[in-house]
Amino acid sequence: MKAILQAEQISKTYQTKTARHEALRPTTLRVHEGEFVSIMGPSGAGKSTLLNLLSTIDQPTDGSILINGADVTAMKEKQLARFRREQLGFIFQDFNLLDTMTVRENIALPLSLANVDKKMILERVDRVARQLGIYDLLDKRPVELSGGQKQRTAAARAIIHDPSLILADEPTGALDSKSATGLLEAMQSLNNEGATILMVTHDPMTASYAERILFVKDGELFKEVHRFGSQKEFFEQIMEVQRELGGAVRELV
């Protein structure tokens, strides 16, 4: 299987006036085409740091990241921006929808930036919106939507341009369990249709929708768990690792 994401020995050190903080120790990880991977870990473990590096929003102190064969650590700002909008799709905890635009326009944005023909854009938006069950909301504006609807809009925006990789940071963080389930099921079906997804979460329930989970602790990859069998079994397995993790933390103290 082709590796969509290939991070080699990436690390991140935050340098403040008074102190150096190694938020991420040298880490190597791979995500293959069509995978649904989740990153878990306690608060402050470096999950967001890792995701920001992988999503090119932040630059690693060391190491290299290849996405779809392209070395993003060597790119300039302009190239990166272009790369992000063509190759990546984002779902953020706080939605990050533009309140000045309708749902349709929000979803259309990545295609519009790529200067796709208007007719084609509208067709694609309709299709994706149907897929995510927000077709009836297309002419509304984000303020008129519920959290779950907003996040599905964000998901639609993340996949509209067929990105090689979809990155999600706590996508269910602001949702109630029903909306969260709706979104995760939608993400799972996107994954079944071939989308590659990398998701950060601290919620075991959310993580159990993935097929592989990377546990991060103190800026390091701590453990990797693959899903075998049902989602319920997977969930139990995750809880088990979390206990282990928590214990490890307690040991440290």
Binding site: I57, E77, K78, L80, A81, R82, F83, R84, R85, E86, L88, F90, F92, N96, L97, L98, D99, T100, L109, P110, L113, R157
Partner: peptide
Amino acid sequence: RFAIIQKIGVDEK
């Protein structure tokens, strides 16, 4: 809003 479009990949120019 500008932070959002920056993340989505609208470059500085």
